[in-house]
Design a protein around this nucleic acid. Structure first.
Lengths: 121, 121
DNA sequence: ATAGCATTTAGAGTCTAGTCTAAGTCAATA
DNA sequence: TATTGACTTAGACTAGACTCTAAATGCTAT
């Protein structure tokens, strides 16, 4: 699969794909005889995972750490699990924070709708 | 209330408070005779709102727009309501995205815990 | 009244995560 | 064969949101 196809499939830019490869989140992707990337199924699986985690706000730094551990083999399984568990906690907290904000936002909108808005921002 | 007290109360830095003031999210905050900020209750209310919305990822640009509309008076009520409704939608989508990622993360952790991990990242 | 810490300003610097540019290579088409 | 368009690289640039610096001034305790 070419970079263009992958980019379209996952709705991201060629640049981002090359950037992820440069920082080591994926690849190095195999290149054909004339130096053009040809993404494998395995590459696609990784990109999907990375994209999903990024969309949840997990930093590239953390994802890189996870990938590096994976590359080191089975001996890092427990460490990887712990890393993911930490990110799970952070993510749960973030979702809670956002849900709280959403509730406040909804409440404020309700005040607007019912014209009960006070004088404050 | 001094800038330090406010910063502590909301767990943010003096710099961030001055920055928010500079870009017009709050204030201008009243200063005492020797030029030192003295935050009013109203300032605190705003800061709390801004902080809550920022923690949900709403951009400074959008918040600034909301504040500016507020400053223009009652005639902007409907526009403000619409702005908030848009942010509500965006926020709901973001929470959904993050919840989906969280589910995948939990599933992956479960694979680690039960040692059913396949060969992929 | 002098030390030592907090506050002020303007403006520069930092960090993250891309995004863009320039210069070059390649394959397919007019 | 010349052009077009996609791809390549290294490296510069950007946006957003702070965060830090320097130099000046103010407050408090000794």
């Amino acid at each position: 699969m070419t970079i263009k196809e992958v980019a379209e499939k996952f709705n991201m830019t060629n640049d981002t794909l090359r950037y992820y490869e440069k920082v080591g989140l994926i690849g190095p992707v195999k290149k054909n005889s004339s130096g053009i990337r040809d993404y494998s199924d395995n590459d696609l699986r990784r990109i999907e995972f990375i994209k999903c985690m990024r969309s949840a706000g997990i930093s590239i730094e953390v994802l890189k750490k996870y990938v590096d551990l994976y590359e080191k083999g089975d001996s890092t399984k427990l460490e990887r699990q712990h890393l993911l568990e930490e990110e799970q906690e952070k993510l749960e907290e973030k979702i809670k924070t956002m849900t709280d904000a959403l509730d406040k936002l909804k409440y404020k909108i309700e005040l607007y709708k019912t014209d009960k808005l006070d004088k404050y921002l």
